[in-house]
C-alpha cells in the first residue's frame, strides 16, 4: 500500500476515487435497503457527538421564537377553549355524553431533511422508545404535515403530505365532500375524486376524515385555492397546505390513547 501511495500520482488516485464514488452512487441507487442501513448506521453513530450541537440549536431556536410562539399559542388555546365549550354545550343539549380524549401529541424536533428529497420526507428525534408508531399522523401548528413511515428506537422518518406517494382520505369541512389528498413531490397538494357538480369554492378548508386510530379525524390539512383539471366526472382541487412546510423545525406526533410515551 505504501508503495502504491509513493509511486503513483495524485491525478491517478483522484481518477480511481472518482470512479469508486460513481460506483458507490450507482450501487446505492440499486440497493436501496443497503443504503438505508448504511444511512441509519452513520446517523445513529453521529447522533452521540451531535447531541450538544442539537441541544444548542434547539435552545437558540426556542429562545428566539419563545415570545412569538407564546402569543400565538395563547391565542390558539383561547380559541380552542371557546370552540370546545360550544361543542360541549351542543352535546349537552343533544343529550350526548362527551367521549374521552382519544389521543395526545408529543413534540419532536426535525433532525434531518435532505435537499434532494425536500418535499418527500424528513427525520425526527422521536422513535419507538417514545411511543411513536408507524403510520401516526404528524402535524405542525395544528395542520397535518405527514405521517410516520419508518421508526427506530430514537428516531423516525416522516413522509410529507407533498410526497408523490402520499395519499390520505380527507373531507371538505364546509360541504362534507369526501376525497383523497395527494402530493406531487414538488410541493403541491391536490384533492382528488370530487364530483364535478359539487360546489367547492376557493377558501374552503380541508381536514382528515375518519381513517384509523393513528390518524385523528378533523385534523386540518389546508384550504382550497382553485380547481384543477376534470377527469371522468371528477375534478381535482388544488390545496394550499396550512402548515409552513418550508420552515419545519419541530412537529407534533399523534399518539393514539396517549401512545404510552416514556418521555
Amino acid at each position: 500500500m505504501r508503495i502504491l501511495f509513493r509511486e503513483s500520482r495524485p491525478w491517478l488516485h483522484s481518477f480511481i476515487a472518482v470512479l469508486a464514488g460513481a460506483v458507490v452512487l450507482f450501487l446505492s441507487s440499486r440497493l436501496g435497503g443497503a443504503k438505508l442501513t448504511a444511512v441509519e448506521f452513520v446517523n445513529s453513530v453521529l447522533s452521540y457527538p451531535e447531541k450538544p450541537a442539537l441541544a444548542l440549536r434547539n435552545i437558540i431556536k426556542l429562545s428566539g421564537n419563545w415570545v412569538l410562539e407564546r402569543a400565538n399559542l395563547k391565542e390558539r388555546v383561547e380559541r380552542l377553549e371557546l370552540k370546545n365549550l360550544a361543542l360541549e354545550e351542543a352535546l349537552q343539549r343533544a343529550g350526548v355524553n362527551a367521549p374521552p380524549a382519544a389521543g395526545a401529541y408529543i413534540s419532536a424536533v426535525v433532525t434531518l431533511r435532505y435537499p434532494q428529497e425536500w418535499w418527500q420526507e424528513l427525520r425526527i428525534d422521536k422513535g419507538t422508545q417514545d411511543g411513536v408508531r408507524d403510520g401516526a399522523a404528524v402535524s405542525s401548528e395544528g395542520y397535518l404535515v405527514g405521517r410516520v413511515t419508518r421508526t427506530s428506537g430514537h428516531s423516525s422518518w416522516v413522509e410529507l403530505i407533498t410526497s408523490s406517494s402520499f395519499l390520505i382520505a380527507a373531507a371538505v369541512d364546509q360541504t362534507r365532500d369526501l376525497g383523497v389528498v395527494a402530493g406531487d413531490g414538488r410541493g403541491n397538494l391536490r384533492l382528488l375524486y370530487i364530483p364535478d357538480e359539487r360546489n367547492i369554492k376557493r377558501g374552503m378548508s380541508v381536514s382528515t376524515s375518519l381513517m384509523n386510530d393513528i390518524i385523528p379525524p378533523g385534523l386540518s390539512i389546508g384550504t382550497i385555492i382553485g380547481a384543477g383539471e376534470e377527469k371522468e366526472g371528477y375534478r381535482e382541487m388544488r390545496i394550499a397546505a396550512g402548515a409552513h412546510l418550508t420552515q419545519l423545525y419541530s412537529v407534533e406526533v399523534f399518539m393514539p390513547n396517549g401512545g404510552g410515551a416514556q418521555k
Binding site: 464514488g21 434532494q116 428529497e117
Partner: peptide, 11 residues
Amino acid sequence: RWTNLPGLTSA
C-alpha cells in the same frame, strides 16, 4: 449523513 446520495460528494 446529509445528502442521501452516497458517493456524490466523494466523487
